[in-house]
Each structure stands twice: as C-alpha cells, then as structure tokens.
C-alpha cells in the first residue's frame, strides 16, 4: 500500500517551520507511527518524533494527524485514508504546547497544570485501623480517570486553552476529579472552591473536543461536568458559572423553554451593573434587528413570565425526575 505523508517540520535553531512530503510503500495494517518510523529509518533520519511502547500505553506519541490529536501508534493508516492511496496524511505536532523539534512538543505547561491541582490524595482525620475502604461503585467511576496516560491529546486540541493560557485544561481537571471524588481525600470542599475560580471548571465551553480525542475513554469534559455538579452540591455558588446553570434550570422549570433575556443578568449577578452595561450596545443592536424576545421580558419565576403550553405536565416530570438520582455509595466497615 502506498502511504503519503505531509509532515510539519520545525527547526529548533531557527524556529522556522515548513512541511516535508514523503511517499512510502507499507503493509496494509500499518499505523501512522509505523509509517513515520519507516520514514525516519529509510527516508529521512533527521525527522524527530517521540515514541516508546507502540501499544497505546505509554502516551508518548501524541501528535495531530489530519487535524486531530491522536496517538500515532493507535491510528491505522487504512482507517484514516479510507483506502484512498492518494490521501495525503497531514502530520503535525500537538497544539497548545511549544514545539521543540518537528513532532516533539515541550510538555512543561502540561505538567505544571497537573501540579496545580495537587494530584494526590490528602486524607484528613485519624487513620483507619486496617485500611481505607472505598465502595466498588466509586472505584469503578474513578477508573475512567485513572485510565489517563498523560499523552496530552486533550490539552493539544482544547479550544479554550487556545485562547486562554490560564485555563487548567482537560487533563488536569480530569485528574482533579480523580482526587476530589475519591472518598479517601479530605479536602473536597477546598479543592472544589479553588477549581471554581477563573481558569477552572466553569471556563470549559463543553465543546466535547477532549472527549473526542482522548484515546483512553477518560472523557475529561464529562469529569468537568461531574466536578460542576459536586461544586454546586458543596454550596459553591457565588460565581457566574454556578449562577448560569441555576438561572438556566430555573428558566426551564418555569417556562419549558429558555428565557434568553434573563440569562446574562442571572449569570453575572442581577446587580452587576458594570458588566450588564457592557452588554448594552450589543443588546441595542439586537433590538434594532428585531432579535430581542420581548415575550421574555419578565424573569423566570415571577408572575406573568413566559410559559409554554402544558407546563403542569412538565413540572410533574421535573418533580418526579428527582427520584432518578443515583444513591450515593456508602463507605462501610
């Protein structure tokens, strides 16, 4: 099988980058990593890349292939090209992290973010006589996150990190969930408080990119959502993210459809005048275009607020849905 590769190269001395094209003959079952190693061994010894286990365990060979972060050792060429030998696979280093050379990234920022969440258990209180006990259900839930091999794929493609270096980003937030949700840790509240600050759990746009690119099913965004739920349960509600989800939910409970008008004041704080004033020019432009829904003028929960037909039935579903909540597993023994 013919394999065409277009590989992004960066010269560490000059910092300049460009693309090198390669065309090799390879077996049908090769992975992108096999192809790249073949290039390095037989075509161009100057090509730099990281790899080790070749079995999706070590997490060394993350890179962008056809625009998406992947473990090169797990990316089958045939699946990517759909059998089209003229398909040119574009191979680039990971995003959101500086490049050292060619396909090798500097992962310092990845590790410093990881350290930022204190990624180890900190028990409080007297030690148990025998050993710490964790319910099975909890442990099964935590295994999602424990599967993380720190390959950096999620950080590479995170759409928020792309615009804000301060964002803790998916890998470290998933790790934070791993310790916060472990009953052996004694700092759940403090950790959640810190994670609710700027750069933390509420800054994620829920774009699902990390879920898509994670090769190990960690689904970091889903862990971030779990952290949000835990933060709210811990009463950490004095921030725009918490207020946003509260006014949103209240709006649906009240009227069935979203009341868009009250989302902003409800999130930033009803009396946060400087922030609300900032939106005024935009609101006026929307009003001029006929895009301000005046039917939503009354805030959710107040008499006369906009409601869909048949809200009594909706409210019945909302009320009864509380019974669907899973029971918290208890520590025994």
């Amino acid at each position: 099988m013919k394999v065409k590769l277009k590989v992004k190269r960066t010269n560490p001395e000059t910092g300049q980058s460009g693309y090198s094209n390669y065309e090799i003959e390879a077996a049908e079952n090769v992975t992108a990593l096999d192809a790249l190693i073949q290039v390095r061994e037989y075509e161009d010894g100057s090509l730099a890349l990281r790899c080790s286990c070749r079995s999706a365990i070590c997490g060394s060979c993350s890179m962008r292939i056809d625009g998406q972060a992947r473990l090169a050792c797990r990316a089958k060429v045939l699946a990517l090209t759909r059998g089209d030998e003229n398909h040119e696979m574009v191979v680039e280093p990971m995003g959101n992290m500086p490049v050292i050379k060619d396909l090798v990234n500097d992962m310092d920022s990845f590790w410093s973010k990881m350290r930022q969440v204190d990624p180890f258990l900190q028990p409080e209180g007297p030690e148990p006589v025998a050993e710490y006990r964790v319910p099975n259900e909890t442990m099964i839930d935590l295994t999602h996150t424990m599967n993380c091999i720190m390959c950096g794929a999620c950080v590479s493609d995170c759409t928020v990190l792309e615009v804000d270096r301060n964002f803790i980003a998916p890998a470290a937030l998933a790790k934070a969930y791993r310790v916060v949700a472990d009953p052996r840790d004694g700092h759940e509240h403090d950790r959640l408080e810190k994670l609710s600050e700027y750069g933390g759990i509420w800054d994620c746009t829920r774009c699902n990119m990390c879920v898509e690119v994670c090769p190990k099913g960690v689904a970091p965004m889903n862990r971030i959502l779990q952290l949000r739920e835990m933060a709210l349960e811990n009463g950490i509600k004095n921030n725009a993210g918490a207020r946003h989800t509260n006014i949103f939910t209240k709006s649906i409970e009240d009227g069935g459809r979203l009341n868009e008008v009250w989302m902003l004041p409800g999130s930033v704080g009803m009396f946060n005048l400087p922030r609300i004033l900032k939106e005024m020019p935009g609101a006026l432009k929307m009003a001029r275009a006929g895009k301000l829904p005046f039917a939503q003028a009354i805030p959710p929960g107040f008499p006369g607020s906009h409601k869909m037909k048949g809200m009594d039935r909706v409210r019945n579903v909302v009320r009864k849905a509380a019974s669907l909540k899973p029971k918290k597993p208890e520590v025994t023994g």
Binding site: L225, L232, F248, R257, M308, V317, A321
Partner: peptide
C-alpha cells in the same frame, strides 16, 4: 421542552434525561 443544552446536565442530568 428545552433539551437542557448541556447546562441543566451540570446540576441535574436526570431532569434533562426525563424531559
């Protein structure tokens, strides 16, 4: 009703599922 848009899911996934 609204699907929840992933927002209701942040605090009450069960309510969003039922709706």
């Amino acid at each position: 009703t609204c699907t929840g848009a992933g927002v209701i899911q942040e605090q009450n996934p069960e309510m969003a599922d039922a709706l």
